[in-house]
Design a protein around this nucleic acid. Structure first.
Length: 214
DNA sequence: ATAGCGATGTTCT
DNA sequence: GAACATCGCTATA
């Protein structure tokens, strides 16, 4: 039970790809019913506002769903994907810009038993220690899995990342070198695939799909 | 390993 | 009516 420093507001008020890259190695901390769920972000995607990114939810302007993505940097944008799975973004930049960083995968650090329970997997001993490596890798290895494991849904849409909101981004004191990070095309898009706006920790076992050097 | 498919809310044509 | 920032199951190799 360690206390980690919260990322300062200025962290989010930068260019969206810089924030996406710098979120690698940072901690996402959710408090659910008094239990800490902590994970280390290892995979992100940047989505630009300003009309230059056809794959971005904000490309065609304000709608009911994307409202919070136009809020100020440091806001949490959660939406329902394919009518079934929730996905979470970290909004960046000034209010009205419409930039977001999709959190695609993370490494479990604390509260794995509850994460597994949230994912519909049983931890018999209640500590999560008995979960197989395969089961652990299946907790947070995708944007929809991650929100489910952390108990994030539309209730969290529009909140500011902060200690008081129960959803928090923290500095784990972990920094990756340039050579340990790769930029790749974003996943699951039919448009905007020409940009290298997906950022991953190359050798991480916790990615939504393993990295293969080209 | 890879491919196909069903589930289903929001947004767009 | 169709596409979509996904997931998990089933079938085929």
């Amino acid at each position: 039970m360690t206390a980690f420093p919260e990322l300062p507001p200025a962290f989010f008020l930068r260019e969206v790809t810089a924030v996406a890259r710098d979120l690698l190695g940072k901690g996402l901390l959710v408090t659910q019913g008094g239990t800490r769920l902590l994970c280390e972000i290892v995979e992100t995607e940047a989505y630009h506002g300003g009309g230059g990114d056809p794959a971005s939810h904000t490309y065609r302007g304000l709608t009911r769903r994307n409202r919070s993505m136009f809020e100020i940097g440091g806001t949490c944008y959660v939406y329902l994907s394919y009518g079934l799975n929730h996905c979470m973004n970290v909004v960046t930049g000034a209010k009205g810009e419409g930039n977001g960083v999709l959190i695609r995968a993370a490494a479990p650090l604390e509260g794995t038993a509850l994460m597994a329970r949230n994912r519909g997997v049983a931890s018999v001993d209640g500590t999560g220690e008995d979960l197989s490596p395969k089961a652990l890798r299946n907790l947070l290895s995708g944007p929809g899995k991650l929100t489910q494991a952390l108990g994030l849904d539309l209730q969290h849409d529009g909140l500011l990342f902060s200690a008081s909101s129960g959803v928090l981004l923290v500095d784990l004191g972990r920094t990756y070198r340039r050579s340990e990070i790769a930029a790749t095309p974003r996943i699951g898009l039919s448009t905007g695939k020409d940009h290298l706006w997906r950022f991953i920790v190359k050798n991480s076992p916790w990615l939504s799909r393993p990295y293969r050097a080209s």
